[in-house]
Write a protein that binds this DNA or RNA. Structure first.
Lengths: 123, 123
DNA sequence: ATAACATATCACAATATCATGATATGACAA
DNA sequence: TTGTCATATCATGATATTGTGATATGTTAT
């Protein structure tokens, strides 16, 4: 793994690079630490069944908090807490309508990720 | 939240369905409990920066464990543990080659989800 | 003002996840 | 067989996340 024998092997099989070359080639082609952190925070949101249920409902239509509670048979605190997390992570947005709050998905990425994931586990 | 006043409001504004109707309409159009559990377990895997880094590398090319360790500057135990989790969740597969194990992503869904997520946080 | 309702926030115990050290397995070489 | 290398598993303390009860905010109706 340390020094290898490439310099005196110009005519060696060239299908595979040495491990050292492979490592040097790819380590600069990935996002930086901060982006991985942010991305993992983003995906973490999808890693909870309650939040997925909410996302699933909102991919059908926009809904207020109480409708979400009823459709999922969950208590209001639970839904409200998860909505806060979804909001904080830019996954849902909402609009106040009198004393109600109508929630919707922020953009199509959310729906795409949800649907590709669902497709993956169903096959 | 308990019984509402729908029955005596036949002539109410009909642009929006009653909450009761909305709820009944959508609650049957979402996956079942077991599927949400499975899907959340699946997404949970993407919710860790180390695993995302591995997925990111493997989306460039197949790699053995030691190359992953070097490229990410992580200790072997950490990488191996995360690879086990990735394997158990059907996100990577591997192929033994002598004493080495060459890992790759199981299918295109994984790469798609990773890339759509990255796109989402970068905009 | 008071009540009722929709929603949000706080606090916390139960549970899950993390990275890592110690150790095991299994392959190849000497 | 003995050693070394690549990889895997186990055990654990530190940390993070969960759902929920208690409570607060803000809106509309009386």
């Amino acid at each position: 793994m340390e020094k290898n024998n490439l310099e005196n092997n110009e005519d060696m099989c060239e299908i595979f690079d040495s491990h050292e070359d492979v490592v040097n080639r790819i380590k600069h082609r990935i996002p930086d630490e901060a982006e991985f952190t942010e991305l993992s925070e983003f995906f973490k949101i999808f890693g909870n069944p309650t939040r997925l249920k909410i996302i699933s409902l909102l991919s059908i239509e926009d809904l207020c908090v109480c409708d979400i509670c009823e459709a999922l048979d969950l208590n209001q605190t639970t839904v409200s807490n998860q909505l806060r997390i979804l909001r904080a992570n830019n996954i849902v947005k909402y609009q106040k309508e009198g004393k109600m709050a109508r929630y919707s998905l922020t953009d199509l990425h959310i729906e795409m990720i949800y649907k590709v994931g669902l497709e993956h586990i169903l096959e």
